[in-house]
Design a protein around this nucleic acid. Structure first.
Length: 492
RNA sequence: CGGGAAGUGGCGCAGUCCGGUAGCGCACUAGGCUGGGGGUCUAGGGGUCGCAGGUUCGAAUCCUGUCUUCCCGACCA
């Protein structure tokens, strides 16, 4: 009641919005295109962030923080980069307000406080960071420089969607500098594998690792690597990117190092990032008509316990047993909440924890205590069963792993079932419109063909998979010769 | 940024055409009966009708502007 979600089949977009809003992940704000990440959503982000941060540190990276503002002249230095971001930048032109002399109580921009040079609110930080790297790097001994920052960025999008595309969003951006091209490419690939590891093993979301075509490449990059995930409506979503930037930024910002051979050389760069968009991917990949479904390894809450009782005497008995169970669960590092609030009844709580996607729910009442069992319900399959209280922590611990694995397997089965090989243009259009998902087809390798396909059917090349087998064929659109299949899809 | 729709207690809506000072369900507060899938009874509290102007004796209602959101499109790493 009052918390009804729009079913997926009725309106997928509305279902997604309902989940995010009613599941308590985020809310709209008074600022166009910007959202409020609510505590439950932020707890999820914190779990994702903490795990990623650990993985970055394990691969030798350190965190730093660079300014929110980028002088316009810095952004201009790398031409491709500048062109790519120019259209979506927020610009600071003044540094002061003053009282409006004609309208008491109102403020106006003080025309005398105009900045000599406009500041751009960072859409990404390559420019400000490479300006700093110039001073930090002199010798090959200063390399590699492996820095990450957790930050917010602003991209002035025309059309926004909660988590998937907002004007301001949170992310991490790694920016590394290397002595050789090979090492930089290795770094970009390594971080792509870190992302894939995280998304698959923690978010239970299978991804395809690949490289982008020139059309989809990051502004200023020589090569963009990506992980692509598939959503339940058959649309693809770029879950993370890693870029080999060559020497473009080193040249733009004049960052040179003295090699072992005592020669001045430009450094080689990478950058890589994932954002709060991953939360959108998580929601769209696993959830159902009852609500969110959180993968146990990053769930803000793993287990909710609901007491069933009549009167204070029974409540006291249940409380004591729950206390015992909670201690055992916590000892295994499982996050657990005992919901003994008296203002709603058990049925309401059941529905609420399903909406929130809590992986496991335990209900315990008089009968269970007599039988030395608890009722365990798993969110992914909605199965319920009585489980002995003895060794309950081990059971739950294993169950959480089972759920994690089941979510991954389910998403993988769906994904694999939605990669369709096609060899004719008619088939291509039919599969794209009727079945959705990735369409594996031959492509002649030209931007022109890619553009035409995009124009005609709204599908883009999501990636050329990393381990793509070579296979002679003809382009599905132009009929020209092709050496391999690539993955097309409609995308977020 | 173009086309369409919407904004009325925390949430979902009615009222707007035809102007007369705001109502329903859920939620909330207090208490009771309850308690294994969104209980129930009684008594309560809460709203500058998105915001700003205008028309009028009088505006949620008519007019103008503006902000926010949704859907479609264009755009977007």
């Amino acid at each position: 009641m009052g918390n009804e979600l729009t079913p997926r089949a009725t309106d997928y977009s509305q279902w997604y919005n309902d989940l995010v809003l009613k599941g308590g992940l985020a809310d709209y704000s008074a600022v166009r295109g910007c959202m409020v990440i609510k505590p439950y959503g932020f707890a999820l982000w914190e779990n994702m962030r903490d795990q990623l941060d650990k993985m970055f540190k394990e691969t030798g990276h350190v965190n730093a923080y660079f300014p929110l503002f980028v002088p316009k002249s810095f952004l201009e230095k790398e031409e491709g980069h500048a062109e790519g971001f120019a259209k979506e930048c927020a610009v600071v032109t003044h540094y002061r307000l003053k009282s409006d002399p004609n309208n008491k109580g109102k403020l106006i921009v003080d025309p005398e406080a105009k900045l000599d040079e406009e500041l751009i609110v960072r859409p990404t930080s390559e420019a400000i960071i490479w300006n700093a790297y110039k001073d930090w790097i002199q010798s090959y001994r200063d390399l590699p420089l492996l820095i990450n920052q957790w930050a917010n960025v602003v991209r002035w999008e025309m059309r926004t969607r909660l988590f998937l595309r907002t004007t301001e969003f949170l992310w991490q951006e790694g920016h590394t500098a290397h002595a050789t091209s090979e090492e930089a490419i290795g770094e970009a690939e390594k971080m792509l594998h870190v992302y894939a590891d995280f998304v698959e093993n923690y978010m239970a979301l299978p991804v395809i690792k690949g490289v982008k075509t020139a059309n989809e490449r990051f502004a200023g990059a020589l090569e963009t690597y990506c992980i692509e995930a598939l959503m339940q409506d058959g649309k693809a979503l770029q879950a993370g990117t890693s870029h080999f930037l060559g020497q473009n930024f080193a040249k733009a910002f004049d960052v040179k190092f003295l090699s072992k051979e005592n020669k001045q050389e430009y450094v080689w760069a990478t950058s890589w990032g994932v954002s709060t968009r991953l939360i959108g991917a998580l929601v769209m990949a696993h959830s159902d008509d009852e609500g969110l479904v959180m993968p146990p390894r990053i769930a803000p809450l793993q287990v909710a316990i609901v007491p069933i009782y009549k009167g204070p005497e029974q409540k006291a008995i249940v409380d004591a047993k729950v206390d015992e169970i909670m201690k055992a669960l916590k000892a295994k590092g499982i996050s657990v909440k005992y919901d003994d609030s008296d203002n709603v009844r058990p049925g309401w709580k059941f529905a609420e924890y399903e909406l929130k996607g809590v992986p496991v729910r335990i209900a315990i009442g008089q009968k269970d205590i007599e039988n030395k069992v608890v009722e365990v319900a798993r969110r992914d399959t909605k199965e319920k069963q009585s489980v002995p209280q003895e060794n309950i922590a081990e059971y739950i611990s294993q169950l959480l792993e089972d759920i994690q694995q089941n979510l991954y397997n389910r998403a993988l089965a769906y994904r694999d079932d939605h990669i369709t090989k096609v060899d004719t243009w008619e088939e291509f259009k039919q599969v794209l419109h009727e079945k959705g998902g990735f369409v594996s087809a031959h492509w002649d390798g030209t931007s022109e063909t890619e553009d035409k396909i995009k124009e005609e059917v709204k599908a883009t090349i999501r990636c050329i998979p990393l381990d793509n087998p070579k296979e002679d064929g003809v382009c599905v659109y132009s009929g020209k010769p092709s050496t391999q299949r690539v993955l097309f899809a409609a995308a977020y």
